[in-house]
Amino acid sequence: MGQYISRRSVHGLVSLIGLLILVFFLSRLTGDPTNLFLPLDASVETRQEFAERHGFNDPLLVQFGRYIGDLAQFDFGTSLRQQRPAMDAALEAFPTTLKLAAVTMFLAISLALIVGALAAYRPGGRFDRTASVISLAGASAPDFWVAIVGILVFAVSLRWLPTSGTGTWLHWIMPITVLLIRPFGLLVQVVRGTMISALSSAYVKTARAKGVKERVIIFVHALRNSTLPVITVAGDQAAAIVNGAVIVETIFGWPGIGRLMIDSIIQRDFAIVQATVLLTAVAIFVMNIVIDVAYAVLDPRIRHN
């Protein structure tokens, strides 16, 4: 098992480095940052001096070498906009997004397990068909539009919830609901699918013949064996939630890493773009390892290989 995990970690590390190279060269292609930071009437000497000081005049490869050298010393560059270490800005925004993602995923998984299991109990029944259409609609809804309609109904018309910002627990309701919808919809379908096949399996028939209660059969016997595919999809969705976080944080004005990333891309703040990409990628990398461990713990076939 240790070997399995370390092999997966090395794979992840290689893609992490590849990603860093990709983002570095891509962001350097976006144009000369000198023009963005200095006023239009700045003299040629000022521009030269500025580019020289920040090393924009060196060949790309030299800049990249310097970047990697700094990385090795845990120096992630300095933000030109904010005049402070880029990683500080990224780390400051990170917990907000992490909290948002953690609460969302917890709710999505718990709700999906219950709804999916009950839907699978009687495939084609009324509950199943309602749940299927709702979960399909959830998986199909564009999150930015759900957010806008949510603001329209609950903030502008009914005035129940605040339009944007953070602070009270009321601020959490809309962002979490919007983020929740897609993972919930997809997970319900996965749970339903695996549960239908689990419920028609031989060990469920045995349990039924022994007189085990239906509730125990659904939530203990069948559900336990359906967790593996659910974990895979939940892991994918947890990584994809960063996609949603960009949109939700932009619309609801949350100071999270998604918004920081969008803002710094627009302002050509290379250091912060790299720091946020690195931080997100590391977070996803760690999560993938946790999922691999969970797999090994839950599935004896992997554990003993």
Partner: peptide, 22 residues
Amino acid sequence: MRFTDVLMSFPSLLLALVVLFV
């Protein structure tokens, strides 16, 4: 395969965002 690992190690919308600014 390493190339796809890189593409898959990161949320697609963010990747698209970074690339579209180039």
